[in-house]
Structures are given as structure tokens and as C-alpha cells.
Design a binder for these strands. Structure first.
Length: 583
RNA sequence: GCGCCCGUAGCUCAGGCGGAUAGAGCAACAGCCUUCUAAGCUGUGGGCCGCAGGUUCGAGUCCUGCCGGGCGCACCA
């Protein structure tokens, strides 16, 4: 199929309409009524206005110049040549400057219910990803403290994106990059060690020399503030001090133990929080492993780049010519003091990602790191990879609020609200749904009181309630002895209310929505879709009874709401939010 | 100063590839439970899509400039 036939793969119906139009164009060309030097891209959309039909196309508008005819005249020619092989189309209208609107027979929509019933939990699944191996790296928090709410948003976005990608046929690998190499983990060890000394009765925190003290303006007094002072540090220290094996160590070994064991504790804590949040990873990748003397990937990466003539020395430091790939200035990989930069690690890490065979690499970063993108892209290019295969998704920071007032947070002092605490207070479902209520790169106010509230102000319960409600209908029907017959024995044509048709149309758009959300990395589209679907369902439920004495109608409606329940369930699953059967 | 992102209803935000009369939730106001779950439903009001140009059959959407806000500009991570 050539590129000119590219169109959104959607329900069979949209595809049917598209083929009908293409056939009409070819038929018109054969009849000599259109010149068609090149087959135009045929796009079919669903009009916002119901009066404009079920589907509409603007091909005629775009062809005006090439055909040297008025759009309306072109539209008339196309319509004249429209064949209607399977009889789905009821009528075709030309409107406005040359829109062609298609009105379908209501019966044409009923097949959607059958599709959903058959596909069930797979409805919306597709193969656009074509098995391409894609890696998503997200959260990647420093193992120096508990996760906070910003990490939570990154986790929610990343996890949902992974679910979407897997559902659309990509082969997805989730990875967490552990920053266990640089000065931050040194500080972690020093922080724990300092608390140990204090617990031992040694009042002088000055026994610990902070590690990051090599910058010019970093006075001794200042440097002390690099230590982590949170309560969790003291907790770990207390555990160590209760351990006779620890106490038996020499002082230097205690320091090492504090660092190494501290990292392990923090990682375990982070993994635990993420598990409770419903997020898991295929791989936890250690930054330190990049420097393994037996297999020094950082050195290998720099050798690679040096061989390409992209590395030079200046002022005692080793630089990468990122400016050759669009960066503002060249960047340092090895400092004059011999220490590698974070950038050097990142280069080696991303080089390794490509060497592991990923055809697409997605990083999810906090938006405050956006200035880092050009140099990373440059590094990807410098290593000989197509920069188009490397995407960075920026997640804006979260403003934590309580009753409309911002909650003050400072990581170093330990005065911050952890993701665990937030989950405890509002629940993981509400938390995740709220994180995905906006575009990832949009600022998000997270008001604890609002997210906790189980009212109409809180969309997560609105959506979950729709699901629970439908489950209840089936329970009630079961209690009344109403047994749902096979779909082939049900007269779906009884679904003739406008509300019922609207619901079906909305359901039929789900696969396209999923595909769009996956391909554009926008999981938030799911929450919007869910709110709309739940809204239609609630209105329908309120207005019409599902289980009545009219059994034929009852069966038809039960299959309809069963389909709704399926789609709500599938969408919630893609968000990592539960679909409760009872509320 | 340079770069990136943002500016849509009172508030918070959606607006697939440029399409027809720009949407939702909340807030405000007025209503609806004898009936499958009221965590629900119905109705009303509310707009210079920041401003000014440009591109074209058509711009909230694309381009340029300006104004306003956020963030980033290390031999830190």
C-alpha cells in the first residue's frame, strides 16, 4: 500500500468509507471527469456536529487547485461515482464549500458491539507498533531519598505510555536508571554515617567531610548542607547502629557500608513504593556498571567518539563537539580534575541502549531538565544513531496543594511529602488518574483535599462508578434470573435510541483513540475519553432502564452496556487504574 | 542577553493531519431519588482562543514580530 493511501486506521466503518471514496476517485478518473495527476490523501473524519453525518471528507476542498474546478463541482463528481458495496451508507450529502458527508444506516453500527464482545479485553489492541523494540526509561530517581510526587507523575505517565505501546503492538522494555555513581550517593553515605556518629553520642557532625567540596564557591560551611537530613536517614542509621556486625567494622569500612548498604535500602524503598503504585520495571540499570573495569562502557564510548574526531582536550578537560550536531556549545565529558561528568555516563548509557537493539528510545524527564535535550540528541547523533529515534518526554513538576494552598517542600532538609504519603492519603487510583488528567508537559496542581474527595469534582470516581454501576446491573439481572443468550440470538436492532447509537459510536472510536495516544505519547487522552464515555453512560442509565419485562430489548441493552463496561475497563487498565465491581 | 515551553469561559484545562456554529469539568444559579447504586441526572448563564501582521478556499491549530508567565543556560547531578 503506497503512502498516499495513508489514513488513520480505525473502525472498519471509517476504513470502509475511505475505500468507497478512493474507488469513487478512481472511477471518476477512468471516466475522464477528474484528471487526478496524483491520488490525493483521503482523510475521513468524524464531524463534531451530528447534522454533518457520521463521517466526512474534505478531499474535494484540497483538490480544487490541481483540478482547476470549484470544490463543490469536484464533490459532485465524486458523489456521482460513489458505489456502496456493502450497503452501510444511507445517504451522502455535499455541504458548505465542498464537504462530503456520509450518513450511515443505524444497523451498520451494530457490528461494533459484536467486535467488542469478541475482542473483550483486547478491544482497542492493534499492530501499528509492528513488534518494534522500544525502550522507555522513566522515574530514574536518585537513590538518595524516597520518591516524591513529581516522581509519581513521571511514573504514572511512563507506565501508562508503556501499557499503551504494548497494547498497540510495540515490544516495550521498561527501564529504571540508577544513579549510583556520582557525588549524590557519596552524600547519601556521608549523611547516614553522620547520623550514626550522632547516635553513638558523637555530637560533631563535622567528623564527616562532605564529598562535594571541589567547586570554588563551596565553603566548608556551605558544603555541610549537601547532606540529606531527612528522617529516613536517621532511621537507616539507627538500624545500622543496632547491628553488631556494623559496629564491629573499622571506621572507614563503616563509611563504605553506609554508602553501599544505604543505596540498597533506598532502592528497595523506591521499588516498594513503585510496586504499591502499580509500576514495575523490566530492568534496573546501574550507572556504576558503566565503569566496570572489566567492561568500561564509558571508556568505550569515548574511544568511539574520539575515533570519529569529535573529541578534543581544552583546559585540561575532555570535550565532545556537540556543536556539530546543533548544540549551543561543546560539552565536557571529563573534568580537569579527572572526574567524569554525568554527561559522560549518559553518553555511555545511551550508546548501550542502542547496542542492545532498541529501535526507539524514549526518556521521560522532569521538565526542569529540558535544557539537557540538545546535548543528549547531539550525543546520540555523534554516536551514529538517528536522532529521530530518540525522544524525550518532559513531565512538568507538580504543585502539591492542600485546600488551595501550596505545600512547601525542600528535599535536602527532608521537609517534603513523599509519594507514599500521598498514596496513603488519596489512594493509588485517584493519584494516578489525577496525574494523567493533563498533558504531561502542562503544569499540574495536585490538591490533596480535592483528589481525596469522592464527589463529582473528582473524575476518577465518576469513571469508576460507571463501571461499578454496570457490574451492579449484571448482578441484579442475574438475581432476577435473566440469563444473557448468545449474541447471535440477540436482536441488536432494538437499539434504536439516539443515546444508544451515540454510545456505540463512542465505543467504535476507542481503537483509534488508543492508537493516537500511543503514537503521540499522550496517555492523558485516555482520561478525557473515559470522562466522555462515562458521562454518556450515566445519562443513558438515568434515562432508560436496562433490565425490563421486554426481554428482547433487555438482551440488546445488556450487550450494549456490557460493551461499555469492557471499554471502560480496558481504558482504565491502560491507565493503571482499577475498575471496581462494587463501590 | 540566548534557548525551550506556555497564554482558550470566573477557575483548572481538552482541542489527531489546518476544516463547518471553539468544547469539558469545576465554581454559580434552578430542578430531579417508590424504579437496575444520587460517587448519579436535567437545565441556564458564561469567549477579542494574549496582541498585531502573514500564508490560503479556510487558522485556536502553520510562519514572523511584540506583550505577559514558567523553566533552562556548569569542568553540578
Amino acid at each position: 500500500m503506497s503512502a498516499r493511501y495513508l489514513y488513520a486506521k480505525d473502525t472498519n466503518l471509517k476504513q470502509t468509507i475511505t475505500s468507497i471514496i478512493i474507488n469513487a476517485l478512481e472511477s471518476a478518473k477512468a471516466a475522464g471527469e477528474l484528471t487526478l495527476p496524483a491520488m490525493p490523501a483521503v482523510t475521513v473524519e468524524t464531524p463534531k456536529e451530528a447534522g454533518h453525518g457520521d463521517f466526512a471528507t474534505t478531499v474535494a476542498l484540497g483538490m480544487a487547485k490541481a483540478e482547476r474546478k470549484a470544490p463543490k463541482a469536484i464533490a459532485e463528481i465524486i458523489v456521482k461515482h460513489i458505489a456502496n458495496p456493502d450497503g452501510a451508507v444511507e445517504k451522502v450529502e455535499i455541504a458548505g464549500p465542498g464537504f462530503i458527508n456520509f450518513f450511515l444506516k443505524p444497523a451498520a453500527w451494530l457490528g461494533v458491539i459484536k467486535d467488542i464482545d469478541e475482542a473483550a479485553s483486547h478491544y482497542g489492541h492493534s499492530h501499528v507498533g509492528a513488534g518494534r523494540l522500544v525502550q522507555v526509561e522513566f522515574v530514574s530517581a536518585n537513590p538518595t531519598g524516597p520518591l516524591h510526587i513529581g516522581h509519581g507523575r513521571g511514573a504514572a505517565v511512563g507506565d501508562s505510555l508503556c501499557r499503551l505501546l504494548a497494547f498497540t503492538g510495540f515490544d516495550v522494555r521498561r527501564e529504571f536508571y540508577i544513579n549510583d555513581f556520582g557525588s549524590q550517593v557519596q552524600n547519601l553515605g556521608a549523611s547516614i554515617y553522620m547520623r550514626c556518629r550522632q547516635l553513638a553520642g558523637d555530637d560533631g557532625a563535622q567528623v564527616v567531610v562532605p564529598v562535594v567540596a571541589d567547586t570554588a564557591d563551596d565553603e566548608a560551611g556551605e558544603a555541610k548542607s549537601n547532606l540529606y537530613l531527612g528522617e529516613y536517614i536517621t532511621d537507616i542509621a539507627r538500624e545500622f547502629m543496632d547491628d553488631p556486625d556494623f559496629l564491629a567494622l573499622a571506621e572507614e569500612d563503616k563509611k563504605t557500608y553506609c554508602r553501599e548498604e544505604g543505596i540498597k535500602r533506598m532502592l528497595a524503598l523506591i521499588a516498594d513504593t513503585l510496586a504499591r503504585f502499580g509500576v514495575s520495571f523490566d530492568n534496573w540499570y546501574s550507572e556504576r556498571s558503566l565503569y566496570d573495569p572489566a567492561n568500561d562502557l564509558v571508556k568505550a564510548a569515548m574511544d568511539d567518539l574520539r575515533a570519529k574526531g569529535l573529541v578534543y582536550e581544552d583546559g585540561g578537560a575532555l570535550w565532545l563537539r556537540t556543536t556539530e550536531f546543533g548544540d549551543d556549545k561543546d560539552r565536557v565529558m571529563v573534568r580537569a580534575n579527572g572526574q567524569t561528568t554525568y554527561f559522560a555516563s549518559d553518553i555511555a548509557y545511551h550508546r548501550d541502549k542502542y547496542r542492545r537493539g532498541f529501535s526507539e528510545v524514549i526518556d521521560i524527564w522532569g521538565a526542569d531538565h529540558h535544557g539537557y535535550i540538545p546535548r543528549m540528541k547531539a550525543a546520540i547523533s555523534a554516536l551514529g544513531n538517528d536522532p529521530e529515534t530518540f525522544k524525550v518526554l518532559l513531565v512538568q513538576l507538580v504543585n502539591l496543594m492542600r485546600e488551595g494552598q501550596p505545600v512547601k517542600m525542600s528535599k535536602r532538609s527532608g521537609d517534603f511529602v513523599t509519594l507514599d504519603e500521598v498514596m496513603e492519603e488519596v489512594g493509588a487510583d485517584a493519584c494516578r488518574f489525577t496525574f494523567l488528567l493533563r498533558r504531561a508537559d502542562s503544569h499540574l496542581d495536585f490538591d490533596l483535599d480535592l483528589v481525596k474527595r469522592q464527589t463529582s469534582e473528582n473524575p476518577v470516581y465518576y469513571v469508576q462508578y460507571a463501571h461499578a454501576r454496570l457490574c451492579s446491573v449484571f448482578r441484579q439481572a442475574g438475581e432476577k434470573g435473566v440469563a444473557l443468550p448468545a449474541l447471535s440470538d440477540v436482536n441488536l436492532a432494538r437499539l434504536d435510541l439516539p443515546e444508544e447509537l451515540n454510545l456505540i459510536k463512542l465505543l467504535s472510536g476507542f481503537p483509534e483513540l488508543v492508537e493516537g495516544a500511543a503514537l503521540s505519547d499522550e496517555p492523558h487522552r485516555l482520561t478525557y475519553y473515559l470522562q466522555e464515555l462515562a458521562g454518556e453512560l450515566h445519562a443513558y442509565y438515568f434515562k432508560h432502564r436496562i433490565v425490563t419485562d421486554d426481554l428482547e430489548l433487555t438482551y440488546a441493552r445488556m450487550y450494549l452496556v456490557k460493551a461499555v463496561r469492557t471499554v471502560i475497563g480496558n481504558a482504565l487498565r491502560l491507565l493503571g487504574v482499577s475498575a471496581p465491581e462494587v463501590m
